[in-house]
Design a protein around this nucleic acid. Structure first.
Ligand SMILES: [Zn+2]
Ligand SMILES: [Zn+2]
Ligand SMILES: [Zn+2]
Ligand SMILES: [Zn+2]
Lengths: 132, 132
DNA sequence: TCATAATTGCAACTTTGTTGCAAAAGTATC
DNA sequence: GATACTTTTGCAACAAAGTTGCAATTATGA
């Protein structure tokens, strides 16, 4: 689907920044931080606009957020037929973050009376490129 | 074990701030943020000192860090016979974070050539007090 | 006690993200 | 396409969380 169609589908007006941002996320093979997005947007777009656009896309269900650690948050486009509730892999060498297949996660032993809404798993390790 | 003995065991000099900080963490039934620690240290101790002490304790293996989300990091004393690699529960109503029993986590489907070092799981939901 | 080494507090800085407001761009109607 | 109205963007200022350098204070060991 074209960036313009994705915007229309979610009832968002079509601006050049939004179109480019979707394109950047769609072409990425890994999750991107707001700074990485900023660097890929050639014209110098204001940080604030990027933050606001990311938040909008998140609220509208276009992208999902991955909190890697306290000062690293990345974003990835939600593709069709893909859930948002899958585990993620973080390479501690090259810092790349990728989505993993949506395997059924087993329940942990929870104390009585606790209720689960979502589960967030980040697997830390090294990717195949860094292991060569 | 007394706070003073814990310091000695890890080769750390015994200062009143470090002693109190260990005591606060030992008496807590949940993971604490640096701000929560600051509030429990009666005399107003400088933020910087708390950050430095937390980092020192973490490096020496006295405490473990739990990254709840992008702007909430909490810490918990590592007790004897307890691993540091267990899942955590975050109550989205009262914001409490607790350690969960160390259940054997199943491997997710990983792409070829990927190597795992640690796995970080945070279960979001509501605790038994908030469910009443 | 005294010298030495380690810890603490202060000020300044960095990074990541937010808010208010005016200027610019988009949308719909004619 | 021009017009009016709404939304988006950029700028400045701010906020929270954490870091660094340096001088003052406190701990340790002889
Ligand atoms: Zn890698
Ligand atoms: Zn993902
Ligand atoms: Zn609760
Ligand atoms: Zn824990």
């Amino acid at each position: 689907m074209k960036p313009e169609d994705i915007l229309a589908k979610h009832g968002l007006s079509r601006t050049s920044i939004r179109t480019k941002l979707i394109q950047i996320l769609a072409e990425a093979h890994e999750a991107l931080s707001s700074k990485e997005i900023e660097q890929q947007l050639d014209d110098n777009v204001d940080r604030v606009t990027i933050y606001r656009t990311i938040k909008l896309f998140e609220d509208k269900g276009l992208i999902h957020k991955i909190v890697v650690d306290e000062q690293s948050t990345k974003y990835r486009l939600i593709r069709e037929n893909k859930s948002t509730d899958h585990p993620h892999f973080h390479c501690i060498k090259c810092d790349k973050v990728v989505c993993l297949p949506d395997t059924p996660l087993p329940c942990c032993d929870l104390p009585q009376g606790f209720r689960v809404s979502t589960q967030n798993t980040i697997i830390e390790g090294t990717c195949q490129k860094c292991n060569k």
